[in-house]
Simulated scan of single mutants.
Amino acid sequence: MHWILLRGLTREQAHWGDFPELLRSAFPEHQFHTVDLPGTGTLFRDDSPGSIPEIRRRVCDQVKHIPRPFSLLALSMGGMVALDWAQHAAPGELQHLVLINSSSGFSPFWKRMRPMAWPNLVRLLARRELFHRERDILRLTSNREVPLALSKSWYSIQRQRPVSYRTAVSQLRAAARYRPQERRPMPDALLLASKGDRIVHWGCSAELEQRWCWTLRLHPDAGHDLPLDEPDWVVRQIAAWLPQ
């Protein structure tokens, strides 16, 4: 089975860190492909579209070489792209869907972006000193102690493939406008959320669970970047959910 991994707002494939390798070790019969959203990572020179459907179309263009069916594992805004993908996929194109700390227009704006996160986010986007900005992004998205080496790693990523202020604003606009279709795209999907998430309220995942009878698993205290804070827990939830 082939999996496509999508990150969130202003983040790229390198921000997964060791998580893809952990997945490959846990599921050696599967193949995992990290793919960047336009305007980030290997595509940092590209413009970012102002809507989730257009971002999804651009991502689909990148993966035409991957055999179908494949599965999607997506974090935060990447989860919006994955959900939109699932609702527009051709028959037999997608097999499994895992959404992590994501949100949608089904939830009120104050759950999609917690009020306490807005001033921090605006300050971070305006900050020009890269090392401190990346360190503070980590402190906002993680509920664990942030090692200096990790801050340096994220600083290096931004130095090599800088995400522009224009891309960040465009992605924020796309996320704020996104509302899925009413129809359930798949019989089941795995929703992973953190009660300790200080950016997106876990109730956004609970809304999808209640609306479409999907599977929800909650972590009690991890941050928004759940694969960073609790990667082993994420892998265990996927292993328990996947058909044997």
Rank of each mutant, 00 (worst) to 15 (best):
L140T: 07
R123Y: 13
I137L: 15
G79F: 10
S102Y: 04
L124W: 03
R144H: 02
V122S: 01
E93A: 13
K152L: 15
L94G: 02
R139G: 12
R144S: 07
R123I: 00
L73D: 04
G92Q: 07
V146Y: 04
L97D: 07
W154Q: 13
L150Q: 08
F106T: 01
L83I: 07
S104V: 00
A149V: 13
V146S: 03
L121G: 11
V146F: 07
S104K: 00
L97H: 05
H88G: 11
S104R: 00
E134F: 03
G92C: 05
R133I: 13
L124T: 02
T141L: 15
M116G: 14
Q87N: 12
S103N: 09
L124S: 05
S107V: 09
R114C: 02
P119K: 11
S153C: 00
K152A: 11
L73K: 03
P119S: 13
L140S: 06
I157Q: 05
S151G: 14
S153K: 06
L148Y: 01
V98Q: 03
D136N: 15
W110E: 15
P115C: 06
S76F: 06
R139P: 09
S76Y: 06
L150P: 03
L140K: 01
G92Y: 10
L148D: 03
H132T: 14
A82S: 09
L94S: 03
F106K: 02
K111V: 01
S151T: 10
A74T: 04
S104P: 00
I137A: 10
G79I: 08
S153D: 02
A82M: 09
I100T: 12
I137T: 14
R144M: 01
L138H: 08
L99Q: 05
P119R: 08
L140H: 02
I137F: 15
P115E: 12
Y155W: 14
G92V: 07
L97N: 06
L125H: 03
S103Y: 08
L130G: 00
I137C: 13
L75E: 03
G105W: 10
W85N: 09
F131C: 07
S103W: 04
F106P: 00
A86I: 09
V146W: 05
R114H: 12
W85D: 12
M113Q: 14
I157N: 05
R112H: 09
D84S: 04
R128L: 02
A82K: 04
S76N: 11
Q87P: 09
M80A: 10
L150S: 02
L99K: 05
W118C: 14
V98D: 02
Q95F: 01
G105P: 11
N143Y: 03
L130M: 04
A82V: 06
F106R: 05
P147N: 11
A126Y: 01
I157D: 05
E145S: 08
F131P: 06
P91Q: 09
L125A: 13
S142A: 08
A74M: 09
L97T: 08
L138Q: 10
E93T: 07
M116D: 15
Q87Y: 06
A90T: 06
A86R: 04
R123F: 09
V122E: 00
E129M: 02
M116F: 11
G92F: 06
P91L: 07
S102K: 02
M80N: 12
G92I: 07
G105M: 10
